[in-house]
């Protein structure tokens, strides 16, 4: 893995000539979590997909650059709201999917270590439909870690989980992805306040950077400043709304 770089995306996106987002510049700090917070339809997922090099349906004119000058899209790992586990493959096979797809030899030791780290060692041979929602997202996280990429893109990965599992997953992900350049796209102000080392609110008027709480992430769910930030973020979201 190359050291995690700074990442900058600047430009504008249109869909059939209509502006999806006006010219904007978003910088992701190297080795830190940036939370991009916004409501539905403001184009925050488009920003993430552009960085990932995925089809967006939008016309993007601008640049996506890494501070080390190397290409971006082949150094990302991607995790979505849907865990995207293959239902016919076992937990172990899902975790090693990337290597299998590239025709590489699977590093079995590493795979097993990651599965253990995600507390899934008793579920190695199970298929995803036999797992709970939280377990499935832990498999997805193990698969993401297995890729060992310096840039990690998270598209609302915890939003389908119940409150308790969500908080657990946030802690686990924050710890596991330390040192990588992480972009977390979310519509949950509480999540952004807990995890963001830098928080940016995206509305139709553009990007508004927002001061994160001083406590190191992941912050405690009842940390007062975190709750204050959550409130401030929600206010920003509502003011920027349609």
């Amino acid at each position: 893995m190359t050291p995690a770089p700074d990442l900058t995306i600047s430009g504008t996106a249109t869909i059939d000539g209509a502006i999806l987002f006006a010219p904007l510049t978003l910088t992701l700090d190297a080795g830190a979590w940036t939370c991009l917070l916004g409501g539905s339809g403001v184009g925050k997922t488009t920003v993430l997909r552009l960085i990932a090099g995925l089809e967006t349906g939008a016309e993007f004119s601008g640049r996506i650059t890494a501070s080390d000058g190397q290409p971006v899209s082949d150094r990302v790992a991607y995790m979505a709201q849907d865990d995207l586990l293959l239902p016919w493959a076992s937990v172990a096979q899902n975790v090693s999917l990337g290597a299998r797809l590239r025709g590489e030899k699977v590093d079995l030791d590493r795979r097993d270590r990651l599965i253990e780290r995600m507390r899934l060692q008793d579920h190695m041979t199970k298929k995803p439909p036999e797992l709970s929602g939280g377990q499935r997202q832990r498999v997805a996280l193990a698969r993401t870690l297995m890729e060992d990429r310096p840039i990690v893109l998270l598209d609302e990965p915890f939003s389908a989980l119940d409150a308790r599992t969500r908080a657990d997953m946030q802690d686990l992900a924050a710890e596991a992805l330390k040192g990588r350049t992480v972009l977390l796209v979310t519509h949950d102000p509480g999540e952004a306040a807990r995890l963001g080392q830098s928080i940016v609110v995206m509305t139709q008027h553009g990007l508004t950077p927002c001061d994160p709480p001083v406590a190191p992430a992941p912050r405690s769910v009842d940390d007062l400043q975190t709750l204050e930030t959550q409130g401030a973020l929600l206010r920003l979201l509502r003011e920027g709304g349609v």
């Binding site: 997909r49 995925l54 979505a80 990337g98 299998r100 590239r102 893109l153």
Partner: peptide
Amino acid sequence: PQGYLDLARTMQAGKRAV
């Protein structure tokens, strides 16, 4: 499902492997 194809894309999978 498009999600699987997206995931495979970020993993630099070849057409045949997908």
